[in-house]
Design a protein around this nucleic acid. Structure first.
Lengths: 102, 102
DNA sequence: ACTATATTTCTAGAAATATAGTAATAGTTT
DNA sequence: AAACTATTACTATATTTCTAGAAATATAGT
C-alpha cells in the first residue's frame, strides 16, 4: 500500500539529524557527496551517521554509489517528488473551497 | 531552529495511521471534518485517534474548532506549504546540474 | 437532573528508535 | 603485504512511540 511507503519516507525525514543530512544532500544535487564529507559538515559520529543514512536509503530517498575510496550519497529526487505529490494530491477532493490558493 | 520544527512535522506525518488521518483531512479542505467522522471513516479506536490528532496538532499541521457537539479538525495548509518548501528550497545550491527538472 | 453523543485522559505493555563507542571490514596506495 | 583512509557491524542504553481499554469529561437536548 502506498500510504505505508510514503509514511516510511516521511518518518525517515522526521528526525532533525536525518533531515539535516537529507538537506545537505539536496544541496549537493545529483552528484551528491561522500559520507565522510557529510560527517565533517554536520559533525555527526560515523556510526550514528551510517545508521541514519541506512534509514534514508531504506526509504529509498537516498542512494549510494562507490567512487574509488569514497562512497557518494545522493538524493533520489524522483521519490522526493512522488512523496510531495502524495501530500498535495486530492486536496479538497471532498469539499472544494478556498484552500491551497498559492 | 527551523529544522526542528519541520522535522517534528514530518515525524508527525511519518506514521501510516496519522498519514491516513491527515490525508482524510486534506480531502476535507478548509472546512475540515469532525473527529467522529474521521473515526468512522478510518475505523480507528477513539483513544488512538485522539492520540494521533494531538500529534498532528502539536506539530501545527492540524487545527481544531468546536462546533456545538462536534469538534472539527482541519489542515493548516500554510504550514503544509512551508514544510514542503523547506524540502525543496536550496535544491542543488552547492552543485547545480540537471536535478529536479520537473 | 437525566440521557445521549463526542472526545479526552489515564494507563501500560510491547516494540521501535536515537545515540555512540568499539571492533571489524573494504578499498587504496606504496 | 603493510599502512592508511573510509565506512559499516556489533553492541548497549536511554528514550520514545504505538496501541487501545477503561474511566473521565464536555456539550447539547429533554
Amino acid at each position: 500500500m502506498k500510504t505505508q511507503t510514503i509514511a516510511k519516507q516521511l518518518h525517515a525525514l522526521g528526525n532533525p539529524t536525518r533531515l539535516a543530512i537529507y538537506r545537505q544532500l539536496v544541496r549537493a544535487g545529483e552528484t551528491g557527496m561522500p559520507v565522510g564529507k557529510v560527517q565533517k559538515a554536520l559533525k555527526i559520529p560515523a556510526s550514528t551517521l551510517t545508521h541514519h543514512l541506512q534509514r534514508l536509503i531504506g526509504a529509498e530517498l537516498v542512494k549510494q554509489e562507490r567512487d574509488g575510496n569514497e562512497l557518494f550519497c545522493s538524493v533520489n529526487f524522483d521519490k522526493m517528488r512522488t512523496m510531495i505529490n502524495f501530500l498535495e494530491e486530492e486536496c479538497c477532493a471532498d469539499v472544494c473551497d478556498t484552500a491551497m490558493a498559492s
